[in-house]
Design a binder for these strands. Structure first.
Lengths: 292, 292
DNA sequence: ATGGTATGATAACTATAAGTTATTGACGGG
DNA sequence: CCCGTCAATAACTTATAGTTATCATACCAT
Protein backbone atom coordinates (compact mmCIF):
# COMPACT_ATOMS: atom_id res chain seq x y z
CA UNK A 1 0.00 0.00 0.00
CA UNK A 2 1.75 2.98 -1.38
CA UNK A 3 1.14 6.72 -1.25
CA UNK A 4 1.21 6.83 -5.03
CA UNK A 5 -1.43 4.13 -5.23
CA UNK A 6 -3.63 6.06 -2.82
CA UNK A 7 -3.19 9.17 -4.91
CA UNK A 8 -4.20 7.33 -8.06
CA UNK A 9 -7.20 5.82 -6.34
CA UNK A 10 -8.37 9.16 -4.97
CA UNK A 11 -7.99 10.82 -8.35
CA UNK A 12 -9.92 8.07 -10.12
CA UNK A 13 -12.61 8.27 -7.44
CA UNK A 14 -12.90 11.99 -7.99
CA UNK A 15 -13.06 11.88 -11.76
CA UNK A 16 -14.86 8.53 -12.00
CA UNK A 17 -12.75 7.83 -15.05
CA UNK A 18 -9.41 6.06 -15.37
CA UNK A 19 -8.31 7.85 -18.51
CA UNK A 20 -9.10 11.31 -17.16
CA UNK A 21 -7.24 10.48 -13.95
CA UNK A 22 -4.25 9.34 -16.00
CA UNK A 23 -4.22 12.66 -17.83
CA UNK A 24 -4.48 14.65 -14.63
CA UNK A 25 -1.60 12.68 -13.11
CA UNK A 26 0.46 12.90 -16.30
CA UNK A 27 0.83 9.18 -16.68
CA UNK A 28 -0.64 6.61 -19.02
CA UNK A 29 -3.99 4.94 -18.45
CA UNK A 30 -2.60 1.41 -18.04
CA UNK A 31 -0.41 2.66 -15.20
CA UNK A 32 -3.58 3.66 -13.36
CA UNK A 33 -5.26 0.35 -14.15
CA UNK A 34 -2.28 -1.53 -12.84
CA UNK A 35 -2.00 0.47 -9.64
CA UNK A 36 -5.71 0.14 -8.83
CA UNK A 37 -5.56 -3.58 -9.53
CA UNK A 38 -2.56 -3.94 -7.29
CA UNK A 39 -4.36 -2.09 -4.50
CA UNK A 40 -7.46 -4.22 -4.89
CA UNK A 41 -5.35 -7.37 -5.02
CA UNK A 42 -3.64 -6.37 -1.79
CA UNK A 43 -6.87 -5.52 0.01
CA UNK A 44 -8.67 -8.57 -1.27
CA UNK A 45 -11.73 -6.91 -2.76
CA UNK A 46 -12.77 -4.39 -5.36
CA UNK A 47 -12.75 -0.69 -4.63
CA UNK A 48 -14.19 0.43 -7.92
CA UNK A 49 -17.09 -0.90 -9.91
CA UNK A 50 -16.18 -0.74 -13.58
CA UNK A 51 -19.16 -2.71 -14.87
CA UNK A 52 -21.11 0.42 -15.71
CA UNK A 53 -20.04 3.13 -18.11
CA UNK A 54 -19.01 5.38 -15.27
CA UNK A 55 -16.57 4.14 -12.69
CA UNK A 56 -18.35 3.84 -9.36
CA UNK A 57 -17.04 3.29 -5.86
CA UNK A 58 -18.02 0.08 -4.10
CA UNK A 59 -19.17 0.38 -0.49
CA UNK A 60 -15.72 -0.66 0.65
CA UNK A 61 -14.28 1.82 -1.83
CA UNK A 62 -16.21 4.64 -0.18
CA UNK A 63 -14.72 3.73 3.19
CA UNK A 64 -11.23 3.38 1.77
CA UNK A 65 -11.53 6.67 -0.07
CA UNK A 66 -12.08 8.64 3.10
CA UNK A 67 -9.17 6.88 4.78
CA UNK A 68 -6.94 7.49 1.76
CA UNK A 69 -7.92 11.15 1.56
CA UNK A 70 -7.09 11.60 5.23
CA UNK A 71 -3.68 10.01 4.80
CA UNK A 72 -2.88 12.09 1.72
CA UNK A 73 -3.96 15.28 3.47
CA UNK A 74 -1.68 14.52 6.40
CA UNK A 75 1.15 13.68 4.05
CA UNK A 76 0.71 17.03 2.30
CA UNK A 77 0.50 18.83 5.64
CA UNK A 78 3.72 17.17 6.78
CA UNK A 79 5.44 18.21 3.58
CA UNK A 80 4.22 21.78 3.98
CA UNK A 81 5.48 21.93 7.51
CA UNK A 82 8.90 20.77 6.42
CA UNK A 83 8.92 23.27 3.56
CA UNK A 84 8.24 25.98 6.12
CA UNK A 85 11.28 24.87 8.09
CA UNK A 86 13.28 24.89 4.88
CA UNK A 87 12.01 28.38 3.95
CA UNK A 88 12.74 29.67 7.44
CA UNK A 89 9.09 30.58 7.91
CA UNK A 90 9.02 28.18 10.82
CA UNK A 91 11.63 27.14 13.32
CA UNK A 92 12.99 27.59 16.80
CA UNK A 93 16.37 27.55 18.43
CA UNK A 94 17.75 28.12 21.89
CA UNK A 95 20.19 30.86 22.71
CA UNK A 96 21.96 31.66 25.95
CA UNK A 97 22.26 35.39 26.66
CA UNK A 98 23.88 36.80 29.80
CA UNK A 99 21.99 39.72 31.37
CA UNK A 100 24.65 42.23 30.46
CA UNK A 101 24.43 41.42 26.77
CA UNK A 102 20.71 40.92 27.07
CA UNK A 103 20.51 44.50 28.17
CA UNK A 104 22.14 46.20 25.25
CA UNK A 105 23.67 44.06 22.46
CA UNK A 106 20.95 41.50 22.18
CA UNK A 107 17.91 43.79 21.77
CA UNK A 108 19.31 45.38 18.62
CA UNK A 109 20.41 42.02 17.24
CA UNK A 110 17.11 40.42 18.03
CA UNK A 111 15.03 43.26 16.56
CA UNK A 112 16.98 43.23 13.30
CA UNK A 113 16.84 39.45 13.06
CA UNK A 114 13.08 39.46 13.65
CA UNK A 115 12.68 41.99 10.88
CA UNK A 116 14.27 39.52 8.47
CA UNK A 117 12.74 36.34 9.90
CA UNK A 118 9.48 37.29 11.62
CA UNK A 119 8.30 33.68 11.95
CA UNK A 120 11.33 32.26 13.66
CA UNK A 121 11.26 31.76 17.39
CA UNK A 122 14.10 32.16 19.80
CA UNK A 123 14.13 30.62 23.19
CA UNK A 124 16.38 32.77 25.36
CA UNK A 125 18.11 31.35 28.42
CA UNK A 126 19.55 34.08 30.63
CA UNK A 127 22.66 33.19 32.54
CA UNK A 128 26.25 34.28 32.98
CA UNK A 129 28.65 34.00 30.08
CA UNK A 130 30.65 31.20 31.69
CA UNK A 131 27.49 29.19 32.21
CA UNK A 132 26.39 30.07 28.70
CA UNK A 133 29.59 28.53 27.33
CA UNK A 134 28.82 25.35 29.24
CA UNK A 135 25.26 25.33 27.92
CA UNK A 136 26.58 25.47 24.37
CA UNK A 137 29.14 22.81 25.19
CA UNK A 138 26.47 20.48 26.58
CA UNK A 139 24.14 21.31 23.69
CA UNK A 140 21.47 22.64 26.00
CA UNK A 141 21.39 25.69 23.78
CA UNK A 142 22.39 25.99 20.15
CA UNK A 143 24.27 29.28 20.40
CA UNK A 144 25.44 31.64 23.08
CA UNK A 145 25.74 35.42 22.85
CA UNK A 146 28.57 35.92 25.32
CA UNK A 147 31.52 37.86 26.50
CA UNK A 148 34.18 35.90 24.73
CA UNK A 149 36.32 34.15 27.32
CA UNK A 150 40.10 34.26 26.84
CA UNK A 151 40.24 30.53 26.03
CA UNK A 152 37.65 28.83 23.90
CA UNK A 153 38.05 25.09 24.06
CA UNK A 154 36.57 23.75 20.81
CA UNK A 155 33.75 26.14 20.04
CA UNK A 156 33.34 28.35 17.03
CA UNK A 157 32.91 32.03 17.69
CA UNK A 158 32.20 35.26 15.92
CA UNK A 159 33.13 38.65 17.36
CA UNK A 160 30.27 41.13 17.26
CA UNK A 161 31.63 44.10 19.11
CA UNK A 162 34.37 45.18 21.44
CA UNK A 163 33.59 47.43 24.40
CA UNK A 164 35.80 49.29 26.76
CA UNK A 165 35.35 48.49 30.42
CA UNK A 166 35.13 51.61 32.54
CA UNK A 167 35.10 52.21 36.25
CA UNK A 168 31.74 53.25 37.62
CA UNK A 169 31.74 55.22 40.76
CA UNK A 170 29.42 57.59 42.58
CA UNK A 171 29.56 61.15 41.30
CA UNK A 172 30.57 62.39 44.77
CA UNK A 173 33.43 59.91 45.05
CA UNK A 174 36.90 61.50 45.64
CA UNK A 175 38.25 59.80 42.47
CA UNK A 176 35.37 60.85 40.25
CA UNK A 177 37.23 63.84 38.82
CA UNK A 178 40.11 61.81 37.38
CA UNK A 179 40.36 61.42 33.63
CA UNK A 180 41.54 57.80 34.06
CA UNK A 181 42.18 55.37 36.91
CA UNK A 182 44.63 52.54 37.62
CA UNK A 183 43.94 49.38 39.61
CA UNK A 184 46.54 50.62 42.08
CA UNK A 185 44.35 53.66 42.80
CA UNK A 186 41.30 51.43 43.24
CA UNK A 187 42.86 48.68 45.35
CA UNK A 188 41.08 49.66 48.58
CA UNK A 189 37.70 50.46 47.12
CA UNK A 190 34.91 48.00 47.89
CA UNK A 191 33.70 46.60 44.57
CA UNK A 192 30.39 45.28 43.33
CA UNK A 193 30.61 42.35 40.91
CA UNK A 194 28.52 39.88 39.04
CA UNK A 195 28.12 36.44 40.60
CA UNK A 196 30.28 33.46 39.84
CA UNK A 197 29.56 32.18 36.37
CA UNK A 198 29.85 35.63 34.84
CA UNK A 199 32.87 36.25 32.68
CA UNK A 200 33.04 39.93 33.64
CA UNK A 201 33.70 38.96 37.26
CA UNK A 202 36.53 36.68 36.17
CA UNK A 203 38.07 39.35 33.97
CA UNK A 204 38.03 42.01 36.67
CA UNK A 205 39.48 39.71 39.34
CA UNK A 206 42.17 38.57 36.91
CA UNK A 207 43.11 42.19 36.20
CA UNK A 208 43.46 42.92 39.93
CA UNK A 209 45.54 39.76 40.25
CA UNK A 210 47.84 40.93 37.45
CA UNK A 211 48.93 43.77 39.75
CA UNK A 212 49.14 41.44 42.74
CA UNK A 213 45.98 42.91 44.24
CA UNK A 214 42.96 41.25 45.82
CA UNK A 215 39.95 43.57 45.90
CA UNK A 216 37.33 43.61 48.61
CA UNK A 217 34.08 42.39 47.05
CA UNK A 218 31.30 44.26 48.82
CA UNK A 219 28.53 42.34 47.09
CA UNK A 220 27.83 40.26 44.04
CA UNK A 221 24.62 39.94 42.07
CA UNK A 222 23.40 38.87 38.68
CA UNK A 223 21.32 42.01 38.22
CA UNK A 224 22.76 44.74 36.08
CA UNK A 225 20.28 47.26 37.47
CA UNK A 226 21.23 46.35 41.01
CA UNK A 227 24.89 47.02 40.34
CA UNK A 228 24.17 50.47 38.93
CA UNK A 229 21.84 51.37 41.79
CA UNK A 230 24.37 50.24 44.40
CA UNK A 231 27.12 52.29 42.79
CA UNK A 232 24.84 55.34 42.79
CA UNK A 233 24.15 54.77 46.47
CA UNK A 234 27.88 54.67 47.18
CA UNK A 235 28.01 51.05 48.33
CA UNK A 236 31.03 50.48 46.13
CA UNK A 237 32.51 50.92 42.71
CA UNK A 238 32.07 48.63 39.74
CA UNK A 239 33.33 47.90 36.25
CA UNK A 240 30.98 47.81 33.32
CA UNK A 241 31.09 48.11 29.52
CA UNK A 242 31.14 51.76 28.59
CA UNK A 243 27.99 51.67 26.50
CA UNK A 244 25.94 49.52 28.83
CA UNK A 245 25.30 52.57 30.96
CA UNK A 246 24.07 55.57 29.04
CA UNK A 247 23.13 58.18 31.58
CA UNK A 248 22.65 57.27 35.20
CA UNK A 249 22.28 59.86 37.91
CA UNK A 250 25.00 59.92 40.50
CA UNK A 251 27.23 57.51 38.55
CA UNK A 252 30.42 58.61 36.83
CA UNK A 253 32.30 56.52 34.25
CA UNK A 254 36.06 56.75 34.08
CA UNK A 255 38.35 54.80 31.74
CA UNK A 256 41.00 52.51 33.14
CA UNK A 257 44.70 52.91 32.56
CA UNK A 258 45.76 50.87 30.71
CA UNK A 259 42.53 50.51 28.78
CA UNK A 260 40.62 47.30 29.33
CA UNK A 261 38.43 45.83 26.63
CA UNK A 262 35.69 43.28 26.50
CA UNK A 263 34.91 41.21 23.42
CA UNK A 264 31.39 40.09 22.80
CA UNK A 265 30.31 37.58 20.27
CA UNK A 266 28.41 34.50 19.32
CA UNK A 267 29.62 31.01 20.09
CA UNK A 268 28.38 27.61 18.88
CA UNK A 269 29.52 24.06 18.72
CA UNK A 270 31.08 23.02 15.44
CA UNK A 271 30.27 19.59 13.88
CA UNK A 272 26.96 19.76 15.67
CA UNK A 273 24.05 19.99 13.23
CA UNK A 274 22.08 23.07 14.14
CA UNK A 275 18.45 23.93 13.40
CA UNK A 276 18.10 25.83 10.15
CA UNK A 277 16.69 28.75 12.14
CA UNK A 278 19.87 28.83 14.19
CA UNK A 279 22.08 28.63 11.11
CA UNK A 280 20.15 31.57 9.71
CA UNK A 281 20.83 33.45 12.93
CA UNK A 282 24.57 32.72 12.80
CA UNK A 283 24.68 33.84 9.17
CA UNK A 284 22.72 36.93 10.10
CA UNK A 285 25.13 37.77 12.93
CA UNK A 286 28.06 37.38 10.53
CA UNK A 287 26.62 40.16 8.38
CA UNK A 288 25.50 42.22 11.34
CA UNK A 289 27.20 45.51 12.14
CA UNK A 290 26.71 46.51 15.74
CA UNK A 291 26.12 50.24 16.16
CA UNK A 292 27.38 51.37 19.54
CA UNK B 1 8.33 11.12 0.05
CA UNK B 2 7.38 7.52 0.35
CA UNK B 3 5.74 5.45 3.07
CA UNK B 4 8.70 3.09 2.99
CA UNK B 5 11.10 5.98 3.48
CA UNK B 6 9.08 7.18 6.46
CA UNK B 7 9.14 3.70 7.92
CA UNK B 8 12.91 3.50 7.56
CA UNK B 9 13.35 6.92 9.11
CA UNK B 10 11.12 6.09 12.07
CA UNK B 11 12.92 2.81 12.67
CA UNK B 12 16.35 4.45 12.54
CA UNK B 13 15.10 7.18 14.88
CA UNK B 14 13.90 4.56 17.33
CA UNK B 15 17.04 2.46 17.29
CA UNK B 16 19.45 5.35 16.74
CA UNK B 17 21.44 3.01 14.55
CA UNK B 18 21.28 2.41 10.80
CA UNK B 19 22.58 -1.15 10.91
CA UNK B 20 20.16 -2.24 13.64
CA UNK B 21 17.29 -0.67 11.74
CA UNK B 22 18.35 -2.54 8.59
CA UNK B 23 18.26 -5.81 10.52
CA UNK B 24 14.86 -5.08 11.97
CA UNK B 25 13.50 -4.23 8.54
CA UNK B 26 15.19 -7.25 6.93
CA UNK B 27 17.09 -5.22 4.40
CA UNK B 28 20.72 -4.24 3.98
CA UNK B 29 22.26 -1.24 5.69
CA UNK B 30 23.09 0.66 2.48
CA UNK B 31 19.40 0.53 1.55
CA UNK B 32 18.66 2.46 4.74
CA UNK B 33 21.47 4.93 4.13
CA UNK B 34 20.19 5.56 0.63
CA UNK B 35 16.58 6.01 1.67
CA UNK B 36 17.44 8.45 4.46
CA UNK B 37 19.70 10.40 2.12
CA UNK B 38 16.94 10.56 -0.46
CA UNK B 39 14.51 11.85 2.15
CA UNK B 40 16.97 14.47 3.37
CA UNK B 41 17.76 15.46 -0.20
CA UNK B 42 14.08 15.93 -0.91
CA UNK B 43 13.42 17.96 2.24
CA UNK B 44 16.54 20.02 1.84
CA UNK B 45 18.08 19.47 5.25
CA UNK B 46 19.39 16.78 7.52
CA UNK B 47 17.07 14.78 9.72
CA UNK B 48 19.73 12.76 11.46
CA UNK B 49 23.03 13.80 12.94
CA UNK B 50 25.55 11.08 12.20
CA UNK B 51 28.63 12.96 13.38
CA UNK B 52 28.61 11.30 16.78
CA UNK B 53 28.84 7.60 17.44
CA UNK B 54 25.11 7.40 18.09
CA UNK B 55 22.70 8.60 15.48
CA UNK B 56 20.85 11.63 16.79
CA UNK B 57 17.81 13.46 15.50
CA UNK B 58 18.25 17.07 14.43
CA UNK B 59 15.65 19.56 15.62
CA UNK B 60 13.91 19.29 12.24
CA UNK B 61 14.21 15.53 12.51
CA UNK B 62 12.29 15.56 15.79
CA UNK B 63 9.46 17.46 14.14
CA UNK B 64 9.45 15.23 11.10
CA UNK B 65 9.53 12.11 13.25
CA UNK B 66 6.27 12.97 14.95
CA UNK B 67 4.64 13.76 11.61
CA UNK B 68 5.95 10.53 10.10
CA UNK B 69 4.77 8.48 13.06
CA UNK B 70 1.32 9.97 12.76
CA UNK B 71 1.13 9.16 9.06
CA UNK B 72 2.35 5.60 9.58
CA UNK B 73 -0.15 5.06 12.39
CA UNK B 74 -2.99 6.23 10.18
CA UNK B 75 -1.76 4.07 7.36
CA UNK B 76 -1.76 1.05 9.65
CA UNK B 77 -5.20 1.95 10.98
CA UNK B 78 -6.54 2.20 7.44
CA UNK B 79 -5.10 -1.18 6.61
CA UNK B 80 -6.63 -2.70 9.71
CA UNK B 81 -10.01 -1.27 8.87
CA UNK B 82 -9.88 -2.77 5.40
CA UNK B 83 -8.76 -6.12 6.81
CA UNK B 84 -11.83 -6.03 9.02
CA UNK B 85 -14.01 -5.57 5.98
CA UNK B 86 -12.18 -8.43 4.31
CA UNK B 87 -12.60 -10.67 7.37
CA UNK B 88 -16.27 -9.76 7.64
CA UNK B 89 -15.71 -8.40 11.12
CA UNK B 90 -16.90 -5.05 9.83
CA UNK B 91 -19.38 -4.08 7.18
CA UNK B 92 -22.89 -2.91 6.46
CA UNK B 93 -25.43 -3.49 3.76
CA UNK B 94 -28.97 -2.39 3.07
CA UNK B 95 -31.83 -4.83 2.75
CA UNK B 96 -35.47 -4.23 1.87
CA UNK B 97 -37.89 -6.36 3.87
CA UNK B 98 -41.68 -6.15 3.48
CA UNK B 99 -43.61 -6.24 6.76
CA UNK B 100 -45.06 -9.66 6.07
CA UNK B 101 -41.64 -11.24 5.67
CA UNK B 102 -40.27 -9.02 8.39
CA UNK B 103 -42.77 -10.65 10.69
CA UNK B 104 -41.82 -14.25 10.29
CA UNK B 105 -39.15 -15.23 7.73
CA UNK B 106 -36.73 -12.47 8.42
CA UNK B 107 -36.33 -12.82 12.21
CA UNK B 108 -35.08 -16.39 11.93
CA UNK B 109 -32.80 -15.53 9.02
CA UNK B 110 -31.46 -12.49 10.78
CA UNK B 111 -30.85 -14.26 14.07
CA UNK B 112 -28.94 -17.09 12.41
CA UNK B 113 -26.92 -14.70 10.29
CA UNK B 114 -26.00 -12.62 13.32
CA UNK B 115 -24.82 -15.75 15.07
CA UNK B 116 -22.31 -16.31 12.26
CA UNK B 117 -21.41 -12.68 11.65
CA UNK B 118 -21.99 -10.76 14.89
CA UNK B 119 -20.12 -7.63 13.72
CA UNK B 120 -21.95 -7.09 10.47
CA UNK B 121 -24.66 -4.50 10.34
CA UNK B 122 -27.85 -4.62 8.34
CA UNK B 123 -29.85 -1.59 7.50
CA UNK B 124 -33.43 -2.72 7.02
CA UNK B 125 -35.86 -0.76 4.86
CA UNK B 126 -39.43 -1.89 5.39
CA UNK B 127 -41.71 -1.60 2.39
CA UNK B 128 -43.91 -3.72 0.13
CA UNK B 129 -42.35 -6.39 -2.04
CA UNK B 130 -43.05 -4.50 -5.27
CA UNK B 131 -41.36 -1.43 -3.89
CA UNK B 132 -38.56 -3.61 -2.56
CA UNK B 133 -37.91 -4.88 -6.08
CA UNK B 134 -37.66 -1.30 -7.31
CA UNK B 135 -35.29 -0.43 -4.48
CA UNK B 136 -33.01 -3.27 -5.54
CA UNK B 137 -33.34 -2.23 -9.16
CA UNK B 138 -32.38 1.37 -8.34
CA UNK B 139 -29.58 0.16 -6.07
CA UNK B 140 -31.07 1.92 -3.06
CA UNK B 141 -30.71 -1.37 -1.25
CA UNK B 142 -28.31 -4.21 -1.97
CA UNK B 143 -30.77 -7.08 -1.54
CA UNK B 144 -34.47 -7.56 -1.01
CA UNK B 145 -36.17 -10.28 0.97
CA UNK B 146 -39.43 -10.41 -0.96
CA UNK B 147 -42.42 -12.34 -2.15
CA UNK B 148 -41.04 -13.35 -5.51
CA UNK B 149 -43.06 -11.63 -8.20
CA UNK B 150 -44.14 -13.74 -11.20
CA UNK B 151 -41.78 -11.86 -13.51
CA UNK B 152 -38.34 -10.86 -12.47
CA UNK B 153 -36.83 -8.52 -15.01
CA UNK B 154 -33.06 -8.89 -14.68
CA UNK B 155 -32.53 -9.60 -11.03
CA UNK B 156 -31.00 -12.67 -9.48
CA UNK B 157 -33.12 -14.48 -6.94
CA UNK B 158 -32.94 -17.32 -4.50
CA UNK B 159 -36.06 -19.11 -3.21
CA UNK B 160 -36.08 -19.46 0.55
CA UNK B 161 -39.49 -20.91 1.27
CA UNK B 162 -42.88 -21.46 -0.26
CA UNK B 163 -46.01 -20.80 1.77
CA UNK B 164 -49.61 -21.59 1.14
CA UNK B 165 -51.99 -18.64 1.07
CA UNK B 166 -55.07 -19.31 3.14
CA UNK B 167 -58.32 -17.45 3.59
CA UNK B 168 -58.65 -15.75 6.95
CA UNK B 169 -62.13 -15.15 8.17
CA UNK B 170 -63.87 -14.54 11.46
CA UNK B 171 -64.61 -17.73 13.42
CA UNK B 172 -68.32 -16.91 13.40
CA UNK B 173 -68.40 -16.44 9.62
CA UNK B 174 -70.90 -18.70 7.75
CA UNK B 175 -68.08 -20.12 5.60
CA UNK B 176 -65.75 -20.83 8.51
CA UNK B 177 -66.73 -24.50 8.73
CA UNK B 178 -65.66 -25.36 5.16
CA UNK B 179 -62.52 -27.47 4.64
CA UNK B 180 -61.62 -25.40 1.57
CA UNK B 181 -62.95 -22.37 -0.27
CA UNK B 182 -63.09 -21.24 -3.92
CA UNK B 183 -62.92 -17.64 -5.16
CA UNK B 184 -66.43 -18.18 -6.52
CA UNK B 185 -67.63 -18.72 -2.94
CA UNK B 186 -65.81 -15.58 -1.76
CA UNK B 187 -66.77 -13.26 -4.58
CA UNK B 188 -69.14 -11.12 -2.51
CA UNK B 189 -67.11 -10.98 0.69
CA UNK B 190 -65.53 -7.62 1.51
CA UNK B 191 -61.78 -8.16 1.60
CA UNK B 192 -58.93 -6.51 3.46
CA UNK B 193 -55.70 -6.14 1.51
CA UNK B 194 -52.25 -4.69 1.72
CA UNK B 195 -51.71 -1.34 0.06
CA UNK B 196 -50.45 -0.83 -3.48
CA UNK B 197 -46.82 -1.77 -3.71
CA UNK B 198 -47.35 -5.06 -1.90
CA UNK B 199 -47.05 -8.15 -4.06
CA UNK B 200 -49.61 -10.07 -2.00
CA UNK B 201 -52.29 -7.56 -3.03
CA UNK B 202 -51.38 -8.00 -6.69
CA UNK B 203 -51.47 -11.79 -6.41
CA UNK B 204 -54.91 -11.89 -4.76
CA UNK B 205 -56.44 -9.43 -7.19
CA UNK B 206 -54.92 -11.40 -10.10
CA UNK B 207 -56.45 -14.61 -8.76
CA UNK B 208 -59.91 -13.02 -8.53
CA UNK B 209 -59.43 -11.69 -12.08
CA UNK B 210 -58.58 -15.20 -13.30
CA UNK B 211 -62.16 -16.17 -12.46
CA UNK B 212 -63.53 -12.95 -13.92
CA UNK B 213 -64.24 -11.57 -10.49
CA UNK B 214 -63.63 -8.13 -9.01
CA UNK B 215 -63.68 -8.21 -5.21
CA UNK B 216 -64.91 -5.41 -3.01
CA UNK B 217 -61.89 -4.08 -1.12
CA UNK B 218 -63.18 -2.96 2.27
CA UNK B 219 -59.88 -1.48 3.33
CA UNK B 220 -56.17 -1.61 2.60
CA UNK B 221 -53.29 -1.10 4.97
CA UNK B 222 -49.61 -1.87 5.26
CA UNK B 223 -49.97 -3.21 8.79
CA UNK B 224 -50.10 -6.96 9.20
CA UNK B 225 -51.50 -6.63 12.72
CA UNK B 226 -54.26 -4.35 11.49
CA UNK B 227 -55.38 -6.90 8.90
CA UNK B 228 -55.60 -9.66 11.49
CA UNK B 229 -57.50 -7.45 13.95
CA UNK B 230 -59.93 -6.31 11.28
CA UNK B 231 -60.63 -9.90 10.23
CA UNK B 232 -61.27 -10.85 13.87
CA UNK B 233 -63.70 -7.93 14.17
CA UNK B 234 -65.60 -9.18 11.12
CA UNK B 235 -64.80 -6.16 8.90
CA UNK B 236 -63.89 -8.51 6.06
CA UNK B 237 -61.90 -11.53 5.06
CA UNK B 238 -58.29 -11.62 4.00
CA UNK B 239 -55.61 -13.82 2.48
CA UNK B 240 -52.37 -14.45 4.28
CA UNK B 241 -49.53 -16.97 4.28
CA UNK B 242 -50.52 -19.96 6.38
CA UNK B 243 -47.64 -19.72 8.82
CA UNK B 244 -47.71 -15.98 9.27
CA UNK B 245 -50.67 -16.37 11.62
CA UNK B 246 -50.09 -18.91 14.34
CA UNK B 247 -53.03 -18.64 16.70
CA UNK B 248 -55.35 -15.66 16.62
CA UNK B 249 -58.61 -15.56 18.52
CA UNK B 250 -61.70 -15.29 16.37
CA UNK B 251 -59.80 -15.94 13.12
CA UNK B 252 -60.11 -19.15 11.15
CA UNK B 253 -57.74 -20.19 8.36
CA UNK B 254 -59.12 -22.19 5.43
CA UNK B 255 -57.14 -23.37 2.37
CA UNK B 256 -58.14 -22.24 -1.09
CA UNK B 257 -59.22 -24.54 -3.85
CA UNK B 258 -57.18 -24.80 -5.93
CA UNK B 259 -54.27 -24.24 -3.55
CA UNK B 260 -52.50 -20.93 -3.90
CA UNK B 261 -48.84 -20.63 -3.04
CA UNK B 262 -46.52 -17.78 -2.33
CA UNK B 263 -42.78 -17.93 -3.00
CA UNK B 264 -40.44 -15.96 -0.83
CA UNK B 265 -36.83 -15.36 -1.50
CA UNK B 266 -33.90 -13.04 -1.79
CA UNK B 267 -33.30 -10.86 -4.83
CA UNK B 268 -30.31 -8.79 -5.87
CA UNK B 269 -28.92 -7.09 -8.89
CA UNK B 270 -26.39 -9.10 -10.86
CA UNK B 271 -23.21 -7.45 -12.26
CA UNK B 272 -23.49 -4.94 -9.45
CA UNK B 273 -20.58 -5.25 -7.05
CA UNK B 274 -22.03 -5.78 -3.60
CA UNK B 275 -20.49 -5.11 -0.19
CA UNK B 276 -18.65 -8.14 1.13
CA UNK B 277 -21.09 -8.20 4.04
CA UNK B 278 -23.96 -8.49 1.58
CA UNK B 279 -22.21 -11.22 -0.40
CA UNK B 280 -21.76 -13.10 2.87
CA UNK B 281 -25.48 -12.71 3.51
CA UNK B 282 -26.41 -14.03 0.07
CA UNK B 283 -24.07 -17.00 0.54
CA UNK B 284 -25.55 -17.54 3.96
CA UNK B 285 -29.10 -17.51 2.60
CA UNK B 286 -28.07 -20.04 -0.05
CA UNK B 287 -27.12 -22.49 2.69
CA UNK B 288 -30.06 -21.55 4.88
CA UNK B 289 -32.89 -24.01 5.48
CA UNK B 290 -36.07 -22.29 6.55
CA UNK B 291 -37.92 -24.21 9.25
CA UNK B 292 -41.64 -23.53 9.00
C1' DA C 1 49.53 6.74 20.95
C1' DT C 2 47.44 2.59 18.43
C1' DG C 3 45.13 -1.12 16.60
C1' DG C 4 40.54 -3.20 16.68
C1' DT C 5 35.68 -2.82 16.27
C1' DA C 6 31.43 -0.77 15.10
C1' DT C 7 29.06 1.98 11.99
C1' DG C 8 27.66 4.78 8.10
C1' DA C 9 28.91 6.15 3.19
C1' DT C 10 30.03 4.92 -1.42
C1' DA C 11 30.35 2.34 -5.76
C1' DA C 12 28.99 -1.02 -8.97
C1' DC C 13 25.75 -4.16 -9.98
C1' DT C 14 21.08 -6.77 -9.90
C1' DA C 15 16.38 -7.32 -9.39
C1' DT C 16 11.99 -5.49 -8.87
C1' DA C 17 8.24 -2.92 -10.10
C1' DA C 18 6.44 1.19 -12.16
C1' DG C 19 5.57 3.11 -16.49
C1' DT C 20 5.11 3.04 -21.71
C1' DT C 21 3.08 1.86 -26.34
C1' DA C 22 0.10 -0.94 -28.95
C1' DT C 23 -3.85 -3.48 -28.98
C1' DT C 24 -8.06 -5.83 -27.60
C1' DG C 25 -12.65 -6.28 -25.80
C1' DA C 26 -16.86 -4.53 -23.77
C1' DC C 27 -20.39 -1.38 -23.05
C1' DG C 28 -23.61 2.44 -24.27
C1' DG C 29 -25.35 6.29 -27.09
C1' DG C 30 -26.74 8.23 -31.49
C1' DC D 1 -26.46 -1.53 -35.47
C1' DC D 2 -22.27 0.56 -35.78
C1' DC D 3 -19.08 3.71 -33.76
C1' DG D 4 -16.75 5.86 -29.99
C1' DT D 5 -15.24 5.62 -25.35
C1' DC D 6 -12.89 3.42 -21.85
C1' DA D 7 -10.64 -0.16 -19.11
C1' DA D 8 -7.84 -4.46 -19.50
C1' DT D 9 -3.98 -6.92 -21.26
C1' DA D 10 0.54 -7.96 -23.27
C1' DA D 11 5.17 -7.03 -24.26
C1' DC D 12 8.65 -4.12 -23.51
C1' DT D 13 11.49 -0.19 -21.26
C1' DT D 14 12.93 2.55 -17.58
C1' DA D 15 13.61 3.83 -13.04
C1' DT D 16 14.75 2.77 -8.64
C1' DA D 17 15.05 0.03 -4.58
C1' DG D 18 18.00 -3.27 -2.88
C1' DT D 19 22.40 -6.14 -2.83
C1' DT D 20 27.40 -7.16 -2.10
C1' DA D 21 31.87 -5.50 -1.46
C1' DT D 22 34.63 -2.07 0.23
C1' DC D 23 36.07 2.17 2.37
C1' DA D 24 36.39 5.99 5.88
C1' DT D 25 35.86 7.38 10.39
C1' DA D 26 34.90 7.65 15.18
C1' DC D 27 35.26 5.49 19.44
C1' DC D 28 37.23 2.28 22.76
C1' DA D 29 40.47 -0.53 25.21
C1' DT D 30 44.98 -1.61 25.66
Amino acid sequence: MDIRELEYFVTVSELKNFTAAAHKLHISQPAISKAIHKLEEELGFQLLDRTQKKVLLTEEGVVFLSLAEDILARMAAAQNTMIEYKNLTRGTFRIAVPPLLGAYVFPQLFADFKKNYPSLEMSVIEDGSSTAVDLVQQEDVHVGLVILPPTLTDLHSHLITSQEIVVCLPTDHPLSRQSFLTFEQLKDEPIILYNEGFVLRRIILDEYAKYGLVPRVALSTNQFQTIKALVAKGVGISFLPKNSIKVVNHVTKIPLHPHLFLEMGLIWKPNKILPLACKAFIDFVNEFEYVK
